[in-house]
Amino acid sequence: MRSSVIGSGSFGTALANSLAVTCDEVRLWGRDEALAASINTRHENPTYLPGIPLSPRVRATLDLKEALEGAELVILATPSQATRDIISRAVDFLPRHVPLLTVAKGIENETLLTMTELLEDCLPEEFHPYIAVLSGPSFARELALRSPTVVTIASHWEKVAARCQKMLQTETFRSYTSNDVVGVQYGGALKNVIAIAAGIADGLGMGHNARAAIITRGLAEITRLAVRKGGNPLTLSGLSGMGDLVLTCTGELSRNRRVGMELGKGRPLADILGDMKQVAEGVKTAKSAQDLAVKLGVELPICQQVYAISHEGKSAKAAVVELMTRQPKPELGGA
């Protein structure tokens, strides 16, 4: 059995290594020739997962046709804002009647589409029933180290979600299926924005009370927007909602929290991102959240302050004061 992972960053590589437990061959596509050579000869991704041995069943390639040929599962692990370009290049080589599982956690800036909506926008209709999404609390490094990890896989077609679930199941990687494609994706995307907010509070030295408040009220914002888009509110109390949110807002491996911490310390965003090897999805998702709030008339006060700090240069301290001094409201139903 052969599978394909498009995107050789940390999470794509970690998933490829996990798939190698159940698949005879996993082809991992990327753009970096030196990185591909290291994966194939040293069985290591020194750029994104240094020091972690990879299965020899994982074979890297720079050729999309080679990567996708004969695959029984295709995982799309490119950053959300790059997904349209990559899938447009890959469409002629995609195998038919095979699950297409996206793991990117973002909302396209220009269109405000989720990743499954973007795939439906790019791909012929015959591919649409096979689209699925994976989300949940899953740091790539821990997944690659075979630490127990549990996620959600959602698809409109239950058989597709179950097929992905079966192929990914190992002793250390477990998934639950869902048909709430909307809720799972909004949970995964917006938690990155809330994690930046939590990091800002940590960078300002505001303590655990503030972090707990951001997580709780952040979940309320995520749920409010997901429900407006047709998601099930119960989904946001699960792995792809609360589970992923808590991990990303508290974990030392969280890139988005790290960005927030540096913003809270007063560093310019450009300098912060310049020091990072990997994408912090929450930075660009903050813009999508801001635009969705305006378009749909949904109150997202924390997300909107993150946008103002990261994209408009607003003072983090001023943003906190503004959040705290808003008009008092009831907890249930109030923003």
Rank of each mutant, 00 (worst) to 15 (best):
V58Y: 09
S155D: 02
S138C: 08
T47P: 15
E72G: 11
L62C: 05
C164Q: 04
E125C: 09
R146H: 13
V58F: 09
E117W: 09
N45T: 11
T102H: 14
V91D: 13
N109M: 14
E44W: 12
T152K: 04
A60H: 06
R57Q: 12
S80K: 00
I39M: 04
D63N: 08
F139A: 02
V160K: 09
I39S: 04
T111I: 10
T152F: 13
T78P: 10
L76A: 02
R57V: 00
A60K: 05
L145Y: 06
T149A: 07
T114V: 10
G106K: 11
L119W: 08
R84W: 11
I131Q: 02
H156K: 14
I87K: 11
N40G: 10
T152C: 15
T111K: 12
L35R: 03
E142G: 05
A71G: 05
E44L: 10
Y130C: 01
K105Q: 15
V150M: 12
P50T: 00
A161K: 04
T61G: 10
A140N: 02
A144W: 04
R42L: 13
P124H: 08
L62E: 04
S80P: 04
E110F: 14
F127S: 01
F93C: 11
K159R: 12
S38H: 03
K65I: 00
G70A: 08
P50L: 03
P95Y: 06
P129G: 03
S55I: 05
T111F: 15
E126P: 04
R163V: 03
L49V: 00
T78E: 04
E158S: 08
E158G: 00
N40C: 04
L134N: 07
I75T: 05
C122K: 08
